[in-house]
Write a protein that binds this DNA or RNA. Sequence first.
DNA 1: TTAGGGTTAG
Length: 553
Amino acid sequence: MCRLHKMLVSLKSSSHNTKHLDQILTQAITTGLIQATPTWNCILRAYAKSPTPIKAILIYNHFTNSNSIHPDSYTFPGLLKACTCLHSIPKGKEVHAHVAKLGLESDVYVQNALVHFYGSTDQIYDARLVFDKMPQRDVASWNSILAAYSSNSMFEALVLFRKMMCERIGADVITLVIILSNLAQVRGGEYGSTIHGFAIKVGFSCILNLGNALMGMYVKYKKMNEALRLFSEMGCRRGVVSYTILINGYVEIGLIDMARGIFDRMVEKDIVLWNSMIRGYVEARRPDEALLLLKKMDNEKVEPDETTVVSVLAACGSLSDLQYGRLVHRSILRNNLRRDVFVGTALIAMYSMSGSIEEAMLTFYKMVDRDVFTWTTMIEGLAHYGYVNEALKLFDQMENDGFGPNEATFVSVLAACRQSGLVNEGCLLFTKMVRIHKIQPKIEHFGCLIDLLSRAGLVDQAEEFVKIMPPGERLVAYKTLLSACMNYSKIGLGLKVADKLYRLGSEDHAVYILLSNFYALAGEWSKVAEMRRNMKSFGMVKEPGISSVEVKT
DNA sequence: TTAGGGTTAG
């Protein structure tokens, strides 16, 4: 009994792996101590924070169904945390009903947890409803509702923050971290300086977490000088998180070697720092250096995690290195890494990019959890290999399985239609995207559709789509349309399009060559001469085309 | 007991 008590006490201070928690649970059941609600709460809370929060819910279900334990106000914060981690909206609502049944509406901890649950599952309206009905609120209540708004609507969050100041609630470090972490949604950056000033005034600026949040804010605004100044001011207080933020900032602005310099100076590197640097090389299109860094990581006996392998697989894909990719796949299985949605999707992308659509499909069908990214990656892979009908079938299956396609999914299927000249299917998909899925078409969607219609000779229909495009993005569309007018000898429309294209004032030599060729076809020789003069006056020289083939021996 | 914080896929 005493040993179990010690174990329960230790649960409060640190997070535990599932195996350790399972042992504690078994012991609590065999000793009968589980019947005591505080013991039960303690175990439930530990599971909620563990890698398997589902067990917290299973324990709750089991004991409440058997009516052997009576939950109290200490039960629900942990339970709601598990619902939040699992993004389980129905379970969270069921728990809310249980809270109401027990009459815990005035418990500030339980109500805060409900606000947090609704806010973290994108149910802002419900979060606000709970918040507004609370008889008492503390700073955590305000922070929870602030966090709910800040990830969606920073403007609303700033209104609330102002209200918090007016009502003299008193912001704490967490309040400022919440505001800072999403502030970059607001253009300008004036608020950032104000909050920085406020943090100095109230004496929070020496707190490491706040320093990091301020650095993160400056990095997001691409104010690297400010971030660097803060980093220097933090002196010995700065930690590995501060280094990671700085590295990410340099990666973001394309100074990868600068990032590497900082990375090499850091003595105590953790896995996130390694991952940031490896990702940086992938982003900088230097995948071979990402793989070299993985080797260095291995030499230094640092175990890669799921995030590492996702980046490494992206590097393999961009190098079309199927052998290395397969090696990474085997190491994922061997090292028992979680085969989650990220890892599975990265494997599909790697196999598709490296020439093995079969292994990509095998991975796709073996996956237990898939999301919109997984489906999109597989659809894109199939379309890329010319399996257009299979790609479109998979798109239907995706919708039937209840996954809402996004912008990228529509780019993939529209590109597939373009590739096979499927005019009706392409038009239907475009309409579906706008009318049913309420997705605002972007230049990529218009590009696919206009190309599809143009290649089929339906230039008048294509022109209708160009008309609804934003004026600043029409250059490529006019080029496509004019080429089609040439191919199908649609001189009348071609003259109109050529005039619009010319008025855009592009300095791209391809535009003037196209215009010159079209006017020659139309017999407008004075215009041909004008285009040639333009090309000369801009000093345009056609760059020789280069193509290469990689031969594997 | 509650809130926030550096890395990951199209």
